[in-house]
């Protein structure tokens, strides 16, 4: 540990790997790479500060680098867990034309076989649906205009032949209040607090009804 962990002080270049190029770069090469570095680092900074909330200047700066972000998949804001949120759960209700009872699909499923990363992808799907529905409501006034909800519904229509319509709803799985949890834990009959207690789910909010093609 200590000094050993720190990166070694760069040498003078005499030991540079010939296969990796010369130990000392010519000035023109340094200038060229230096300019590219300046552009890249400015772009990273602009991307980090450019998402909401941000000033018009910051947004304008981020927009300038948009082509670069699009090409290189950069420009993220990395604002993880600003406020650990309630988790959106997408619920699809499948209506069958042949008289079968309605079927409900939950995204993410309560239990997903396989590695946790597989369920994490489903959590991301539900989150994306929530954002797209909110965006559609903001721009058109109707969450049913969500193109992602339409696409999700189309997939379910294909997966479940005979399905005439898919209704999407979104519920939020809330985080329990710590005081409520302590109160519940103090109750002699409660061994442990159930994080999937029904009281933690908000009333499902309707996103839209999506008829299946050909129905």
């Amino acid at each position: 540990m200590g000094r050993g962990l720190a990166r070694t002080k760069p040498s003078d270049g005499r030991g540079a790997d010939p296969a990796a190029g010369s130990g000392v770069w010519p000035a023109w090469q340094k200038r060229l790479v230096g300019a590219a570095l300046a552009f890249h680092l400015a772009a990273l900074f602009a991307g980090a500060i450019g998402s909401e909330p941000s000033s018009p200047l910051e947004q304008r700066l981020a927009r300038f680098f948009t082509p670069y972000f699009d090409l290189a998949d950069l420009g993220y804001s990395y604002r993880f867990y600003v406020e650990p949120p309630a988790t959106p759960i997408a619920i699809a209700t499948l209506h069958f034309e042949d008289g079968r009872p309605e079927q409900k699909i939950r995204i993410p499923e309560r239990v997903v076989a396989g590695p946790p990363l597989r369920r994490q992808r489903q959590l991301a799907l539900a989150h994306a649906l929530l954002l797209d529905a909110q965006d559609a409501r903001t721009t058109t006034g109707r969450s049913s205009q969500s193109r992602l909800a339409r696409s999700f519904a189309d997939r379910l229509c294909r997966l479940y032949p005979g399905c005439g319509q898919v209704t999407w709803q979104i519920t939020l799985h809330q985080i329990p209040d710590r005081g409520d949890v302590i109160e519940a834990l103090d109750t002699p009959s409660v061994g442990r607090f159930d994080l999937f207690d029904e009281s933690l789910f908000t009333t499902p909010e309707w996103v839209g009804d999506f008829p299946c093609a050909g129905s």
Binding site: A48, I49, P53, S77, Y78, R79, F80, Y81, V82, E83, P84, T87, I89, P108, L123, H173, I175, P176, R178, V181, L195, F196, L200
Partner: peptide, 26 residues
């Protein structure tokens, strides 16, 4: 950016953020 953005969140000031992470059932 992750740290600065968290300064907007109340739970990072009142100390509840860790609770909100460990109690997120999903």
């Amino acid at each position: 950016t992750a740290g600065l953005a968290k300064l907007q969140g109340v739970s990072w000031w009142n100390g509840e953020a860790t609770w909100r992470i460990i109690a997120a059932g999903e």
